[in-house]
């Protein structure tokens, strides 16, 4: 039973704070994605877990034991690096065998284990190849097999699929997820690709500026973002300045409407708040209602039609299914309203 915990973890590089006061608990066998824009501290957090960086403050606890000062070679973790870090001087089989031979396992045991792993990642015939003879996807599999060689307590992957082209990446996402489910190993993947995170993870941890913004299942993160950053970062959201009045009405620009039962208010009444609405919840109506705006761009995305509207200070995005496409053309003036129950107010 490996439960992985971080307690008040902070890491500073000189004056820069890369990770700030992060506390989280990851249950055994969970597939976790650390998601955030570049520079948000997600890679540093992974390296802290791996023992490749020493935290400025805080603790790493694995299965109840404090591992904060344990060097990386004693943690019994597996890791896949962004560059993959495959050894160019070793064959595929020797790369996978590395963590086993370094532990002095017997030759027979190593050979058997390497064969199992090669089978697992479907590279059975390529054990004798050199790394430079492999394709990008094959190298990926070697790195994964190598990371899993010792049955690690925790499997860490740093942007493992970023070097692959789009098709192969999607394929590997599914494969990696299936592999993890089969083995049940606690897995933590760093990614900046939200689609990747939503595809693979049991739990998504959204980070920004060194801090955890939200922890939740992919559905929770998407449906119920905890703050304006998450709302803006996951999927697309219109984020508009608004005022929440004490009589439970919302003012956006000069448009005023009442809060409905299903609308979520994450802030006390006041001015300078943020209204978040997904594009599919934006309605285009006659110019006399809602927020006056002009259609400046229409784009057919296949499964949906996107309208880009210019309000004057802000652009507003609206999304319609092709069957429900309103009869509105480029340059027309419209009124913008928001579907009741789909509106969220955040503090700025």
């Amino acid at each position: 039973m490996t439960e992985l915990s971080l307690r008040r973890m902070t890491k500073r590089f000189g004056r820069l704070t890369a990770v700030e006061d992060v506390t989280l608990d990851i249950p055994d066998g969970t597939f976790v994605c650390l998601l955030g824009p570049s520079g948000c501290g997600k890679t540093t957090l992974l390296r802290l877990l791996a023992g490749l960086e020493t935290p400025t403050e805080g603790q790493v606890i694995v299965a109840g034991e404090d591992q904060t000062t344990v060097p990386p070679e004693k943690r019994e973790f597996g890791m896949v690096f962004q560059s993959l870090a495959l050894f160019p001087h070793l064959s595929v089989a020797d790369n996978i065998a590395y963590p086993l031979t370094i532990r002095g396992r017997s030759k027979a045991e190593v050979r058997e284990r390497v064969e199992t792993l090669l089978d697992l990642v479907q590279l059975s015939d390529l054990g004798d190849r050199r790394i430079h003879q492999l394709s990008g996807g094959q190298r990926q599999r070697v790195a994964i097999a190598r990371g899993l060689a010792i049955d690690p307590r925790v499997f860490l992957l740093d942007e493992p699929l970023s070097a692959l082209d789009a098709n192969l990446r999607e394929h590997m996402q599914v494969e990696l997820r299936q592999l993890q489910q089969r083995l049940g190993v606690t897995t933590i993947v760093v990614t900046h690709d939200q689609k990747e995170a939503l595809t693979m993870a049991d739990v998504v941890i959204v980070m920004n500026e060194g801090r955890v913004q939200q922890i939740g299942s992919p559905m929770e993160i998407y449906r119920d973002p905890a703050n304006a950053f998450v709302a803006g970062f996951i999927g697309t959201s219109n984020l508009l300045p608004c005022t929440l009045n004490t009589d439970r009405s919302i003012e956006v620009f000069d448009y005023r409407f009442d809060v409905e039962e299903e609308d979520r208010l994450k802030s006390d009444p006041g001015a300078g708040l943020v209204l978040s609405v997904r594009p599919e919840d934006v309605r285009l109506e006659a110019p006399s209602t809602g927020i006056p705006a002009k259609v400046i761009f229409i784009r057919d995305l296949g499964e949906s039609i996107q309208f880009v509207l210019d309000q004057g200070d802000h652009e507003i995005y609206a999304l319609y299914a092709p069957s429900a496409r309103p009869d509105i053309g480029l340059g027309e003036e419209v009124g913008v309203t928001f579907a009741p129950g789909k509106r969220v107010v955040f503090p700025a």
Partner: peptide, 26 residues
């Protein structure tokens, strides 16, 4: 590549072993 050294460390190699099994061969 520094990550080669780090990879070896995460796979259980001590300082001296990294030197012997990764750096010197390269």
């Amino acid at each position: 590549d520094t990550s080669l050294v780090e990879a070896a460390r995460t796979m259980g190699a001590r300082r001296g072993q990294v030197l012997r099994t990764v750096i010197l061969p390269l």
